[in-house]
Design a protein around this nucleic acid. Structure first.
Lengths: 187, 187
DNA sequence: CTGTCCATGTAAGGCGTTACATGATTGT
DNA sequence: ACAATCATGTAACGCCTTACATGGACAG
């Protein structure tokens, strides 16, 4: 149900076509949500049927009509309600941990290969977050709504912190396995 | 595809029925993977069709047959291959961050309500991980395979570290919003 | 003239959830 | 007597992905 509400969020800033919405997702929330094109078009249709959106059709002779979606009153109410309600706990799914859990069946060399690979990914991710964060910060004074700006920075900060946690975890795991001590961290 | 491989992992330790497999999931990897019953039964059938598993049927007069699944050679090969291969990057989806991102549309009071709620969840989660971790540690000397034990502790440690990262993030977010300074952390 | 962008959609299949259905056994 | 556990499954629905399909505009 979150895609629906993310769409309501973006459209409440500004009415958009499905195509523009897809670009908006990719440009602003890719770090915590992706939506693919066919999913967006289908969801827009469904939301229009549900009365959450209204469709403005722009005819362009010789080309397909363009459809601009606007949030209805019902849509705004729905969004506000959703934004202020706690979400149900979702089951977490970490395929990578399944690999680790069953790595008793592979040898150290293979396992270290995997962990080093993940480490590189985590480092790249962290670097990307850091860069985006700093680039955004440098434009902080141009923000028209400091509170909204702060909130968008918070979502980046979450990304930073979780990449960093992953990185720390991998570093310790690799060290222990390389040392072949296999002694879990004391807490 | 990970469910399939988790099933291969468990069955390679010991042949089990669908029912026992479900309990095994719930008892050992619930913190990073859940599988529901109907999904398990469907997947077992499919895997048997694919030749990854073989089915041993135990007839029990008056009651439904019980089916014990065994990993085939093909299944073992598949599992080993999967365990040593890096997984494709998956799109992360954090519905909670959508709420934060669009919280420009709700007021501080509502937002703080949400964040405090999440904080409580994170604290509970952290406490649960800590407890499980310590309980497992106290049984460390009884582990027959120290390396496999270490790997299972690693998955718990991952949970600990990510709950802790969430908790840290929430704490800072709440503090900033309560102070109404809205100034993102400098990095 | 070739490729990329704009802009729309459909189809098929996998994965996951919830709910429904059955019936014996074991524990309180 | 009643509830929980053992043990199997089916049905229906929702979400997401991949691939397919169409066709004008515009830039190099």
């Amino acid at each position: 149900m979150s895609l629906k509400h993310a769409i309501l969020g973006f459209l409440s800033f500004k009415p958009l076509s499905g195509y523009d919405l897809k670009k908006t997702f990719d440009n602003s929330v890719r770090h915590f949500w992706t939506a693919n094109q066919s999913q967006i078009y289908r969801t827009l249709s469904k939301m229009t049927d549900e009365g959450l959106l209204s469709k403005e059709i722009i005819e362009r002779d010789e080309r397909l009509d363009m459809k601009i979606y606007h949030v209805s009153e019902k849509g705004r109410a729905e969004l506000h309600q959703w934004l202020a309600s706690p979400l149900p706990r979702q089951n977490m799914r970490e395929p990578f941990l399944i690999q680790v859990f069953f790595s008793g069946l592979i040898d150290d060399e293979e396992l270290l290969g995997l962990l080093h690979y993940e480490l590189r990914i985590a480092e790249e991710e962290l670097a990307a977050y850091t860069q985006t964060y700093q680039a955004s910060m440098s434009r902080a004074n141009q923000a028209e709504d400091p509170r909204a700006f702060f909130l968008s920075m918070l979502t980046l900060d979450y990304g930073l912190k979780s990449s960093q946690a992953m990185l720390d975890w991998l570093t310790i795991a690799i060290k222990e396995i390389e040392a072949k001590t296999y002694s879990p961290t004391q807490i």
